[in-house]
């Protein structure tokens, strides 16, 4: 299989997986599951779809040449988690105490 076909197939796989994961996420709404389960499903499929797109569209993988980019992304996610998670923690705590 030529390099080009292999790469095209990778894009197509990425798209198909994304469609699948999006469909699962959207299907939770009409299915009317319990709220906790819905949130969990939406959350998991979002995370999976991010990974799929990073892998198949942005070509980030565990190989050595990509290590620098991967480290950058993981470090950014750490800081994003600290900032966004911290904000939500602080502000919900505050609003609970102001009830």
């Amino acid at each position: 299989m030529s390099e080009e076909r292999r790469e095209r197939r990778s894009y197509l796989i990425g798209t198909l997986l994304s469609i699948l994961l999006t469909a699962i996420a959207f299907a939770t709404i009409p299915l009317d599951l319990p709220r906790g389960g819905t949130m969990l499903l939406i959350g998991i499929s979002a995370v999976l779809q991010v990974i799929v797109q990073l892998r198949f569209f942005l070509h980030i993988d565990l190989s050595r040449q990509k290590r620098e980019d991967l480290q950058l992304i993981l470090f950014s996610l750490l800081l994003l988690g600290i900032m966004a998670g911290g904000t939500i923690w602080i502000l919900t705590n505050l609003s609970q105490r102001m009830m």
Partner: peptide, 17 residues
């Protein structure tokens, strides 16, 4: 990146935060 709240300790959040 993990210390910013010390600029507003007195905002009214709980002691654990």
């Amino acid at each position: 990146f993990t210390v910013w709240l010390h600029h507003f300790f007195t905002m009214g959040q709980s002691a654990s935060v």
